[in-house]
Design a protein around this nucleic acid. Structure first.
Lengths: 190, 190
DNA sequence: TTGCTAAACGGCGGGGGTCTCCGTATCGTA
DNA sequence: TACGATACGGAGACCCCCGCCGTTTAGCAA
């Protein structure tokens, strides 16, 4: 890659991160180009789709989460290991503007890309779930957990303290909103 | 209201309902105007904001849900009454394209309008929650339940069977994803 | 150093969307 | 039937996404 291309790539990434933090996943690409001082074509060359830009912006963060998951595999307190990680994911999803929407969108895209954030998180979290299978409600998958988390993050995006609120809601869901009764029964609910 | 205005209003509402069902809450207002055979100014006159249009389109449905809530107040099995109603809300939010997003947005708008859908549902559901307070986890409010439901609906919007998936996730949250013990948050995120 | 070439750049043009405003057509009434 | 209030339509200004192409420039090689 040519030196000027590298410079522009880095610049765009930095600007995009700011702009997305400010305006969410729908931030204007044109605006990003303007701030970065490049033509709109340059943005498009480096990031052919909006999804590509989002993926690049959030890559480090997602990889960090995946690493955190790997670090927790094999711990004896499987439940705590899983819940702590999920809480970290929740905090990121709720705090980093646009991340939740990005995660949600590429779940919709139906695993079109192998390296999309949702896929990565799913693969990273799967061992933790398997490990903790005994203490989870029957039928709960890593996909369910991530779906719930992204949903919660979307729903709390405009709360004064999104991370706290999201974690609170997720904790409620983990413990059960109304836990009595059919807790351990796998039969279909209505 | 003049007769032609009434006609246009009704036409627009019908077209908007279709178009939103097809393309979600971001459906093009211009497109709606075109299909309805009116000028774009007419759309904006009847519905000054996108929110106003969404509110009008979903009004009947929301009122039906509110009515269902009222019908359930006073039932002896308070828990079932609440859960059934929440399931109905979940089904609507997940099935009717754009509704979840509309609900989510007007929660963000911070009760700007008294008659917004979220407010209505909150008021309608509150008695059911109070009634069932004894069997709910401490600290759970009607706002929490609705936030969770809209979040779940958003996250399952592109699932093959959104209603089933959303209800499944919500049922899991009600019973508890991992019902025993307490959820702990990690010492430091990242 | 100087050419040269492929890679990268910028921005134009077309297609849409939102929002505002105003001249005009139409309704309902006197 | 005539008239005023009301509603209509669409033009204009602005922004955004997307594809394309003429121009510039980095980096290698002579």
């Amino acid at each position: 890659m040519r030196a000027d291309a590298q410079r522009n790539y880095a610049r765009l990434l930095a600007v995009a991160e700011e702009e997305i933090a400010l305006n969410g996943a729908d931030a204007s690409l044109e605006q990003i180009a303007r701030i970065a001082g490049v033509g709109s074509g340059t943005v498009r060359r480096h990031f052919p789709t909006r999804h590509a830009l989002l993926a690049a912006v959030f890559r480090d963060r997602v990889e960090s989460l995946c690493a955190q998951a790997r670090d927790r595999v094999g711990r004896t307190d499987a439940r705590a290991a899983l819940l702590e990680w999920l809480s970290a994911v929740t905090t990121s999803a709720a705090t980093i503007r646009g991340l939740a929407m990005a995660l949600n969108r590429d779940r919709a895209a139906d695993a079109e890309h192998e390296h999309c954030a949702t896929t990565q998180l799913t693969e990273a979290g799967e061992p933790l779930v398997r490990q903790a299978a005994g203490v989870l409600a029957p039928g709960v998958t890593i996909a369910d957990l991530l779906a719930l988390i992204t949903g919660i993050a979307l729903a709390t995006e405009d709360h004064p303290d999104p991370a706290a609120e999201a974690n609170r809601l997720f904790a409620l869901a983990v413990a059960g909103l109304s836990p009595q009764g059919e807790v351990r029964r796998p039969a279909a609910a209505r």
